[in-house]
Amino acid sequence: MSVRIYLLSVFSFLIFMGNLQAQEENNQFRRDYNYYSGFDGEKWTEWERTSVTLVFNYGINSDVLKFTANGERTLYRRVSNVENSSVGNGEKCQFITVLDENGNMLEIQLFENPDLGVKLIYGNFAIQLIKGD
């Protein structure tokens, strides 16, 4: 009986520490974007106005939540660890892999330089969002 209580205590402590660590790592923040451009696999479109807010590290799983001006919400479920990287021109960024609400896998590339914004990459297609003016 005492072994069971001991194991239950250890297990409970480990769960508590894991939740505490997850809370410390979950520094939720938001970014607002006013322009977007799309990449169709060959070329980028012209920049167009938009109103999109992304909330990063949303919830216990550190997901990404997207809000649009018309009230639409989309949850991107994080399915990978954060990967620090840089692109061809040396700009630093972070990548995560997520699933959209239909189960489609995509990568989110968040640039360290806020002027470069964020890219949502679906295979050969991409959308880049920037703050602009």
Rank of each mutant, 00 (worst) to 15 (best):
L20E: 06
W47A: 03
F13D: 09
R30W: 03
T74Q: 15
S37E: 08
S51T: 12
I5P: 01
Q28Y: 02
M1N: 07
N104Q: 13
F16P: 00
I108Q: 01
L54V: 00
E25M: 15
L120E: 07
E107L: 14
A126I: 01
S12P: 03
N89H: 11
F11D: 06
E72P: 01
R4L: 06
L65M: 12
Q23N: 08
V87W: 02
G41P: 01
F11K: 11
S37A: 12
I127G: 01
E83T: 14
K119S: 10
S62K: 15
V3W: 14
S2T: 10
E72I: 05
G132T: 06
S62W: 08
M1D: 07
M1A: 10
N81F: 10
G18L: 11
I127E: 03
Q21S: 09
Y6P: 00
K119C: 09
K43Y: 01
N19H: 14
L129S: 07
Y76Q: 00
Q128F: 02
V55T: 15
A69Y: 08
P114E: 13
S80G: 02
G88D: 08
E25I: 10
N124M: 11
V98E: 03
D63G: 06
S86H: 14
F29R: 14
M17Y: 11
E72A: 14
G59P: 07
R30A: 12
E91Y: 12
D133V: 07
E42V: 09
A126W: 04
D133F: 10
I60R: 10
M17W: 13
I127Y: 08
V55H: 01
S2V: 09
G18P: 01
G90Y: 04
L75C: 02
I60A: 11
G59V: 05
T74V: 15
N89G: 07
V55E: 06
V10N: 03
R49D: 10
E42N: 12
K92I: 04
R31H: 06
E101W: 07
F67D: 02
F125W: 09
T68L: 01
G103V: 13
L20Q: 08
F95A: 04
T53S: 15
N124T: 13
D115V: 07
P114R: 04
Y36S: 01
K66F: 02
E46S: 13
G59F: 03
E72R: 14
M17N: 06
V3Q: 14
I121H: 05
G132P: 03
L7G: 03
G38V: 09
N70R: 12
G18V: 07
N113I: 08
T97I: 15
V3C: 06
M105A: 15
I5W: 12
I121D: 09
R30N: 08
R73I: 05
S51C: 08
I15D: 01
I5F: 11
N113H: 04
E83P: 00
R77P: 00
